[in-house]
Nucleic acid binder design. Structure first.
Length: 345
DNA sequence: AATCCGGGGTC
DNA sequence: GACCCAGGATT
């Protein structure tokens, strides 16, 4: 029995009943695929449920504000996905009359849809013979065929894509594509794969050469940048504070945060006071004190954010202030959300 | 071709 | 602490 046939039979026996597996509706498949980019299925499920309920149709998503979309996306990370999701919903609604295009090529033109997602939608929704290559597929193919070409080199990307096309089952592409990914997620897992019960074991090169733990090969380049964030939590006599929206490039684009004073290292109360006027032009504060007693190091893929929250009180009224009790309504990074949860003035 | 972009689970 | 996750966009 060949590779694709074994995958299909394994999938029939082992597939999970995921919320988006009961439909071929492009809107829902697209939504799930965007959410699952670099994201575990278990983490994505509750977000998928929330979005489907809040926005049953692509037109509903298009009609929402970006702030609403970001708020629902809060905590899932990679927020450009949410911004692109919203932009694409508008395009589909306005220029495609609410219907997704049904070819790889057209899908690829949409914001947030790259090679993987275009292939996934084209195959799952429309039965197009397009091979998906995600992290699971890289791992399964690298092990089964014993390929040590780095999966994140440009040569590797092309090689694995061609290989995936060569061995796919074009007639059963919908189940085959989902099957090989599911197989990678459950059977051929990154750590401790279940080779003992694997239906592909007899012909797996990595198993035969005892190189399961060495494949796939990935070039690593994880240089972490250390940054020092001082958040200025202004508080006035009316229990109001100030929030700003992050603009430009960089992390957390369009999400909200407190006025930020970034420094090269940890700074003290005196330096915070000295820099206060440049960020917010207002009267003299009555007191400034550090809120978090223990260190907060918020870790992103490429950055460690050494964070201090400074409470700065005023015996007057802040202009453009918002009620502290309303903070939870704004889309914010997890770092800020965690602070808001514990913040009691 | 390299780098950036989150947050959380797992070992 | 290191690795990975149903990747894509930018430089």
């Amino acid at each position: 029995m060949n590779f694709s046939r074994i995958i299909l039979e394994w999938y029939e026996q082992n597939k999970r009943l995921l919320p988006w597996r009961r439909t071929k509706e492009p809107y829902r498949i697209w939504l799930s695929e965007i959410m699952l980019q670099q994201t575990r299925v278990a983490q994505g499920i509750p977000y998928y449920m929330k979005f489907v309920e809040a926005f049953p149709k692509v037109q509903d998503l298009a009609a929402a504000s970006e702030e609403q979309v970001l708020k629902l996306w809060q905590g899932l990370g990679y927020y450009s996905r949410a911004r692109n999701l919203h932009a694409t919903a508008k395009i589909i609604t306005e220029k495609y009359n609410g219907k997704f295009p049904d070819t790889y090529k057209e899908l690829l033109q949409l914001k947030g849809i790259g090679d993987y997602t275009a292939s996934a939608i084209a195959s799952i929704c429309f039965g197009r013979p397009e091979a998906v290559v995600d992290g699971n597929v890289y791992r399964v193919l690298a092990r089964y065929y014993g390929i040590d070409l780095p999966i994140n080199s440009s040569e590797g990307v092309l090689y694995f894509k061609e290989l995936a096309k060569d061995i796919m089952d074009a007639k059963n592409i919908r189940d085959y594509n989902q099957g090989i990914m599911e197989f990678g997620a459950l059977q051929c897992a990154p750590k401790n794969p279940d080779c003992g019960s694997c239906p592909l074991q007899k012909s797996c090169v990595a198993f035969a050469t005892n190189s399961i733990d060495n494949l796939p090969v990935k070039i690593k380049k994880n240089k972490v940048r250390n940054r020092y964030f001082n958040y200025l939590v202004l508080v006035d006599e009316n229990k109001q504070t100030l929030l700003q929206q992050r603009k430009g490039s960089g992390i957390w684009q369009n999400l909200y945060e407190f006025p930020l004073l970034e420094s090269e290292k940890y700074i003290d109360q005196g330096e915070v006071a000295g820099n206060l006027k440049e960020l917010v032009s207002l009267q003299e504060p009555s007191e400034i004190y550090l809120y978090n007693e223990s260190k907060i190091v918020h870790k992103l893929s490429h950055q460690h954010l050494h964070t201090r929250f400074w409470i700065i009180t005023f015996e007057s009224n802040l202009e453009n202030g918002i009620q502290i009790a309303e903070l939870h309504k704004y889309p914010v990074p997890v770092l800020i959300a965690d602070f808001i949860k514990t913040f009691k003035i």
